[in-house]
Amino acid sequence: MPMAILDIQTMLLEAFPDAEIEIIDLAGDGDHYKAVIKSSAFAGLSRVKQHQAVYAALKGKMGGELHALALETSAKE
């Protein structure tokens, strides 16, 4: 069963309370998303570390309930 956008946003905001988050349904199927996330938690982290932090925030849902998630992460100015 696909994951709802609201569920993804909720999990990400729990991990990154100051984040600006935009979730886009890429295929209109509720199964392929893009997340644009800006958070001060990403300051000083490499892109790989930022993405690993996002995957950790999703608590094992990636690859299961959440089939595909393209990430665009950055630190807040």
Rank of each mutant, 00 (worst) to 15 (best):
I8S: 06
G60P: 15
A41H: 10
A56T: 11
Y55R: 09
L66A: 05
I21F: 06
S74I: 01
F16Q: 06
A68Y: 10
D25T: 04
P2G: 10
L66D: 03
A4R: 14
G60S: 11
Q50A: 11
R47D: 09
I8V: 12
D7R: 05
V36Q: 08
H67P: 03
A68T: 07
L26S: 04
D25Q: 05
Q52K: 14
D31R: 12
I37P: 07
E65C: 07
L58A: 10
F16I: 11
M3Y: 03
A4D: 09
M11K: 14
P2F: 10
M62K: 07
S46E: 07
V36I: 14
V48G: 00
G64R: 15
A19D: 07
F42T: 00
A41Q: 09
A15P: 05
M3T: 12
Q52D: 02
E72L: 15
I5M: 11
A27G: 03
A4C: 00
L6R: 12
E65D: 13
D29T: 08
A68S: 15
D7S: 11
E77A: 13
T73W: 09
R47L: 15
E14M: 07
A35I: 02
Q50T: 02
A27C: 06
A57Y: 03
M11I: 00
V48Q: 11
H67V: 02
D25F: 04
L45T: 06
G60H: 11
S39T: 13
K38P: 00
D29P: 07
A57W: 04
G28N: 08
V48S: 09
Y55P: 02
E77N: 09
G64Y: 12
G64W: 10
P2T: 09
Y33S: 02
A4K: 14
M1Q: 12
E22Y: 02
E22T: 09
